[in-house]
Design a protein around this nucleic acid. Structure first.
Lengths: 228, 228
DNA sequence: TAGGATTTGTGCGTATGTATT
DNA sequence: TAATACATACGCACAAATCCT
């Protein structure tokens, strides 16, 4: 009798995924900004485990490029110049477009209801949102729109690229003194456009819409970053 | 004084990469066919280390989808149906095409010399090659052609997809009773076509050439696999 | 059905490397 | 320059889970 159904005791893998997900989110929310030294023992204690499983999580984060462990020094949250980020952004553009061609999933009415809810929350966030809340919201939207393709490896790679680029977006956006309220507004507009395309059942248009906005978002970052 | 240059003592990461590379190659060469149970202690002893670093390697292979560790059972080399492989193949097609557009690298004369050498070896292999030698050769060609793009994340993802699909190609090709000599011949022809495109400096053509051949290769596999 | 053999997962002490004083 | 502090890397012993007899 294993836990193949229902909520019995969480398996080893579940705990691993939960810790990985949590720490990855902290990195993207800048709870652990680039350069932060993460302590194996401190994290292990916090999550109620020992160093060994935590090292497994940190190793995975290292393979994903989010942290780097150096013997004798520590596990440091990685940083990158905008120029280094550009390769990842351009690849992310192309993979995003692929979601419209590779195993697209026409969403059901429940999906549209969830999207409506997200868009409403996004509208409220324009005036009252903090950078942190906005990032959380962005992550939630990303995970939702990822359901529009059934191609598992594509989803996996898009997720990797998203977290690797998104965490530095917030850092760079603050440093470049971008008008975050304006960014919120643009994002909200993007979501409405995506909803329109979804209602028309045009998943390729949805993908191109996302691609265009990611491209413009990076463009704004680069212009301000290069200027100021 | 660290080992940043020259051949001083290999670093921790070097040993890790070497073990990972070796075991991954064994999986693709069918030294460890799908379903094989890998022993942590046996592998650790063979590589002259303990379980801990070996577990780190196996964990990475698990993240890459090549093996799966189950508590109390063992670490098993994963298997997949052709239908499951199709998603990965289609994504690989698209990423291969991207190598011609994302940070293409015009190769120098030394690269062309190496390619000439590879093509010559490929010609010999048509008559005298074993499936194992052919796979090794295919891996070497893949790594060489990967140099034609400078986009690091694209290379990384292409590598992941290559090993995840290639290891099952050999299994499926043997089971579907494909004419391997004919496959060798086709591959050699592909390489000559790629060389032609490279001499013309048309990297986009090189990418499309690779894409076309990967597509046709999978097509042959699917036809025979579905028929017999 | 129960028990033993085998395997992966966990916890912790120790070794090794780095940075700072 | 040397010593001390502290971090990750490693190795081993034990716990937990599964399979086979």
């Amino acid at each position: 009798m294993t836990d193949d159904q229902g909520d019995t005791t969480p398996s080893v893998r579940d705990r691993h995924d939960a810790m990985h997900h949590e720490i990855r989110q902290r990195i993207c929310l800048l709870d652990y900004p680039p350069g932060t030294r993460l302590s194996e023992v401190a994290l292990a204690e916090e999550f109620g485990t020992s160093r060994t499983p935590m090292r497994r999580v940190l190793a995975r984060l290292e393979d994903e490029g989010l942290v780097q462990s150096v013997h004798g020094v520590g596990t440091i949250v990685t940083d990158a110049e905008i120029s280094e980020l550009e390769q990842e952004y351009r690849l992310r553009l192309e993979l995003t477009e692929l979601t419209g061609r590779l195993d697209p999933v026409v969403p059901g009415p429940d999906f549209m209801v969830r999207l409506d809810g997200l868009i409403d929350r996004g509208a409220e966030m324009i005036t009252s949102g903090t950078p942190r809340a906005f990032t959380r919201f962005d992550m939630e939207v990303f995970q939702t729109l990822l359901e529009l393709t059934a191609n598992a490896p594509l989803r996996e790679m898009l997720e990797r690229l998203y977290y690797k680029t998104k965490r530095l977006w917030l850092t760079a956006a603050i440093e470049a003194q971008l008008d975050l309220t304006e960014e919120f507004r643009i994002f909200h507009h993007e979501l409405e456009a995506i909803r329109l395309a979804l209602r028309a059942g045009d998943l390729e248009a949805v993908a191109h819409m996302q691609r265009a906005h990611i491209s413009m978002s990076f463009q704004r970052l680069r212009q301000r970053g290069g200027a100021g």
